[in-house]
């Protein structure tokens, strides 16, 4: 009896090995959080030095700072030439163009592919297509940029009556659109797979065709997952750098994203401008240097907001069935 008692009261949870393991795992989790926080702090600090109202207080010369209002409201971005101007609207307009343009390509195609995979494809077809899609997602983005420059742009140049330049937003949008299709497809397909089969059966039982069931039962029931796939893919699109920098050039001009003609010109979004600043010959104390941080923070805020929205959508609608 007493040996049972002593067995029952042995504390395995307090043994040195268990404690060590606990601390080790905690440290690993903590490191990633600390690093992330550190990056954000660096971004914010750099950006604070960029803006006049905070930068001067941090010891910057007023000439090396930019007022928040001119950053947010002006449309000329010329960090490398006199007079230096830092109007966010120019790179931001290119980012919005990239988002819209790649959305037009990726959202319908990605959703259609997801419907095919989830509703139409046989098991054999699916086991072949899903890995293919993952490979597509694994291609380095610089290869996509190269592909745009060498194939898509020359092709467009022949198709478009007035021709397109060597660098243009269309081919950047097309190639980024293609790049994010796998993301849209795989997240949407997961959402569609989660739709209970009983709902499909209900649809078929009421005399719906396969197309009807896909579009009126499966897609609406999976809409929250589809919406988050869209948002996540688009936040990936606006964060894309290499492919865009290669395909769309380095010029920065404020453009109307709703004007289709604008897409035939070169333009460079926030990410591409950051590359230029990072690789250019700039002083570590000047406004151009800190502009990198301001742009980085801007992009971070935008993508963070999109991820939060996507999270909200999926948690708000997740419990729709069952």
């Amino acid at each position: 009896m007493s040996s049972i008692t002593s067995d029952l009261t042995t504390r395995t949870a307090k043994s040195p090995r268990e404690r060590l393991a606990r601390w080790f795992f905690f440290a690993c989790a903590a490191i990633s959080i600390v690093v992330t926080i550190g990056i954000v702090v660096v971004l914010v600090l750099g950006a604070l030095k960029f803006f006049r109202s905070t930068g001067v207080a941090l010891g910057m010369a007023p000439g090396d700072t930019v007022s928040l209002s001119s950053y947010l409201l002006e449309g000329k971005w010329t960090p490398g030439s006199e007079p230096q101007q830092f109007g966010l609207l120019a790179p931001l307009s290119a980012t919005v163009m990239l988002m819209l343009g790649s959305a037009i390509i990726a959202l319908p195609l990605g959703l259609a592919a997801a419907i095919y995979l989830s509703e139409y494809a046989s098991d054999r077809m699916r086991s072949f297509l899903k890995p293919a899609l993952e490979i597509l997602a694994g291609v380095p983005t610089v290869v996509y940029g190269f592909f745009a420059l060498v194939y898509i742009t020359p092709l467009l140049d022949q198709l478009v009556p007035l021709g397109v330049g060597t660098f243009n937003m269309v081919s950047a949008c097309i190639v980024v659109g293609i790049m994010i299709i796998p993301m849209v497809t795989s997240i949407s397909e997961d959402a569609m797979n989660a739709v209970p089969d009983s709902l499909r059966q209900a649809g078929y039982g009421l005399g719906a065709t396969k197309f009807d069931v896909s579009t009126t039962v499966v897609v609406p029931s999976a809409i929250s997952g589809i919406a988050s796939s869209y948002i996540l893919a688009l936040s990936r699109a606006i964060g894309e750098t290499m492919a865009v920098a290669i395909a769309a050039g380095s010029q920065s001009t404020v453009m109307n994203p709703l004007n289709p003609v604008a897409y035939f010109s070169p333009n460079s979004p926030i990410t591409a401008q950051m590359i230029q600043l990072a690789t250019g010959d700039i002083s570590a104390q000047g406004a151009a240097y800190h502009a990198m941080f301001a742009l980085g923070l801007t992009l971070f805020v935008v993508t963070l907001a999109m991820n939060v929205v996507s999270e909200l959508i999926s948690s708000r609608y997740r419990e729709v069935y069952r």
């Binding site: 059966q201 209900a202 078929y204």
Partner: peptide, 16 residues
């Protein structure tokens, strides 16, 4: 199936 309706074991209303 338009002539032969079906009711299933577990209630399966659409999320509509």
């Amino acid at each position: 199936r338009r002539r032969v309706g079906m009711v299933f074991q577990k209630p399966n209303p659409f999320p509509k």
